[in-house]
Amino acid sequence: MPEPTQLLKSDRLNEFSTLELAQALMERLAISSNDWHRLKSNRKARASEQVAAALVLLLKDNPEEALLRLNQASGWLDRSISAPPCPTHGHNGDRQ
């Protein structure tokens, strides 16, 4: 039998729609600008971010965009994509 605290958590989760829960997960997994340099090449973090976004898009009835995000997540996991250089450290048009 579930613990009383587990029942309370479950009851609280039922207050939210599936879309609201997915959006909360997406917000939790999104890489903030403060963490960008630290996590830009973290494959698990990048894939998690993309999968959560795909779930939200799917729940919003946008399967094409969801599939693009899932493909991005797959690319992070299978190492077929990597992080682009940071735009603030990239090449300046004035320098050669």
Rank of each mutant, 00 (worst) to 15 (best):
Met1Ala: 13
Pro2His: 11
Pro2Glu: 14
Thr5Ser: 15
Thr5Trp: 14
Gln6Phe: 15
Leu7Cys: 14
Leu7Gln: 14
Leu8Glu: 14
Leu8Ile: 11
Lys9Val: 13
Ser10Ala: 12
Ser10His: 12
Arg12Pro: 03
Arg12Asp: 10
Arg12Ile: 10
Leu13Asp: 08
Leu13Asn: 07
Leu13Thr: 02
Leu13Phe: 06
Asn14Met: 09
Glu15Trp: 09
Glu15Met: 10
Glu15Lys: 10
Phe16Pro: 05
Thr18Phe: 11
Leu19Asn: 04
Leu19Arg: 05
Glu20Asp: 10
Leu21Tyr: 03
Leu21Lys: 10
Gln23Met: 07
Gln23Asn: 04
Ala24Lys: 11
Ala24Met: 08
Leu25Tyr: 07
Leu25Thr: 14
Leu25Gly: 06
Met26Thr: 09
Met26Asp: 12
Met26Tyr: 12
Glu27Arg: 13
Glu27Trp: 09
Glu27Leu: 11
Leu29Ser: 06
Leu29Gln: 07
Leu29Arg: 08
Leu29Tyr: 04
Ala30Ser: 10
Ala30Lys: 10
Ser32Ala: 05
Ser32Asn: 04
Ser33Val: 07
Ser33Asp: 12
Asn34Asp: 10
Asn34Ala: 08
Asp35Met: 07
Asp35Thr: 01
Trp36Glu: 07
His37Tyr: 11
His37Ser: 15
Leu39Glu: 02
Lys40Trp: 03
Lys40Asn: 06
Lys40Leu: 01
Ser41Ile: 00
Asn42His: 05
Lys44Tyr: 08
Lys44Cys: 05
Lys44Gly: 05
Lys44Phe: 07
Ala47Trp: 00
Ser48His: 05
Ser48Asn: 11
Ser48Arg: 07
Glu49Asn: 02
Gln50Met: 09
Gln50His: 07
Val51Arg: 03
Val51Gln: 01
Val51Ile: 09
Ala52Leu: 01
Ala52Trp: 00
Ala52Gln: 00
Ala53His: 03
Ala54Asn: 00
Ala54Phe: 01
Leu55Trp: 04
Leu55His: 06
Leu55Asn: 06
Leu55Phe: 06
Leu55Lys: 09
Val56Glu: 01
Leu57Thr: 01
Leu58Lys: 10
Leu58Met: 10
Leu58Phe: 12
Leu59Val: 02
Leu59Asp: 01
Leu59Ile: 04
Leu59Asn: 02
Leu59Ser: 04
Asp61Ala: 09
Asn62Tyr: 08
Asn62Glu: 15
Glu64Asn: 13
Glu64Gln: 14
Glu65Gly: 05
Glu65Ala: 13
Leu67Asp: 11
Leu67Thr: 11
Leu67Ile: 11
Leu68Asn: 15
Leu68Glu: 14
Arg69Asp: 09
Asn71Leu: 13
Asn71Gly: 09
Gln72Ile: 13
Gln72Cys: 08
Ala73Gln: 02
Ala73Asn: 02
Ala73Thr: 00
Ala73Gly: 03
Gly75Lys: 01
Gly75Glu: 02
Gly75Ile: 00
Gly75Trp: 03
Trp76Pro: 01
Leu77Tyr: 01
Leu77Ile: 06
Asp78Pro: 01
Arg79Tyr: 09
Arg79Lys: 09
Ser80Ala: 01
Ile81Trp: 01
Ile81Glu: 02
Ile81Gly: 01
Ile81Pro: 03
Ile81Gln: 03
Ser82Gln: 12
Ala83Ile: 05
Ala83Glu: 10
Pro84Gln: 06
Pro85Thr: 11
Cys86Phe: 07
Pro87Glu: 07
Pro87Lys: 05
Pro87Tyr: 05
Thr88Pro: 03
Thr88Met: 14
His91Phe: 13
Asn92Met: 12
Gly93Val: 15
Asp94Pro: 04
Asp94His: 14
Asp94Arg: 13
Gln96Asn: 15
Gln96Phe: 15
